[in-house]
Measured scan of single mutants.
Amino acid sequence: NKFNKELQWATWEIFNLPNLNEEQVKAFIDSLRDDPSQSANLLAEAKKLNDAQA
Rank of each mutant, 00 (worst) to 15 (best):
L43V: 15
L7Y: 06
S31Y: 11
S31I: 10
N41Y: 08
R33E: 13
E45K: 11
N4R: 04
K26D: 07
K47G: 05
E6D: 12
L42D: 01
L42V: 15
E13V: 13
Q24D: 04
F28N: 00
Q38R: 10
K26G: 10
N4V: 07
D34Y: 10
A44L: 11
L7N: 02
P36I: 11
N21Q: 08
N41R: 11
V25H: 04
A10E: 03
R33V: 14
I14A: 02
R33T: 14
L17A: 01
Q8I: 12
I14Y: 02
N19K: 03
S37H: 07
S39D: 02
D34R: 12
Q8L: 13
N41F: 11
E45P: 00
N1H: 03
N16D: 05
Q24F: 02
P36W: 05
F15S: 15
I29Q: 04
W9T: 10
K47V: 10
K26N: 13
F15T: 15
A40W: 11
L7G: 03
N21P: 02
A40L: 13
W9L: 13
L49D: 01
A40D: 08
K47D: 01
A10N: 03
A52P: 03
I14V: 05
D51W: 07
K5L: 03
D35V: 05
N21K: 10
S37N: 06
K26H: 11
T11G: 04
P18V: 06
A10L: 10
Q24K: 01
A52R: 09
Q53N: 08
S31D: 08
D35Y: 07
N1D: 15
N1K: 05
S37G: 08
L20G: 00
A40P: 09
N19I: 01
E45Q: 13
W12S: 12
R33Q: 15
A27E: 07
E13R: 05
D35W: 06
N4I: 12
N1E: 14
A27N: 12
N19G: 05
N41Q: 12
A54E: 10
R33S: 10
L43M: 06
N1G: 12
F28S: 00
L42Y: 07
F3H: 14
T11L: 15
D34E: 12
D51Y: 10
K5S: 12
N1F: 00
N1Q: 07
I29S: 03
K2H: 15
D51Q: 13
Q38L: 08
A52Y: 10
N21Y: 10
E6R: 03
E22Q: 10
L7P: 02
N41T: 10
D34A: 13
W9R: 08
I14E: 03
N4H: 13
E6N: 05
F28V: 02
A27G: 12
A44M: 15
K47E: 04
W9M: 14
D30F: 06
L49H: 02
Q53G: 04
Q38S: 07
I29L: 10
L20S: 00
N50Q: 02
A54H: 06
A10V: 14
D51A: 13
D34P: 02
D30V: 07
R33F: 15
W9G: 04
D30H: 11
N19H: 11
L43R: 03
E22R: 08
N19A: 08
A27I: 12
S39I: 10
W12R: 12
A46M: 02
A54F: 08
K26F: 07
E6W: 10
N1L: 02
K47S: 05
E23T: 11
A44I: 14
L17N: 01
A44S: 12
L17P: 00
A27L: 08
L20Y: 00
L42I: 15
Q24R: 01
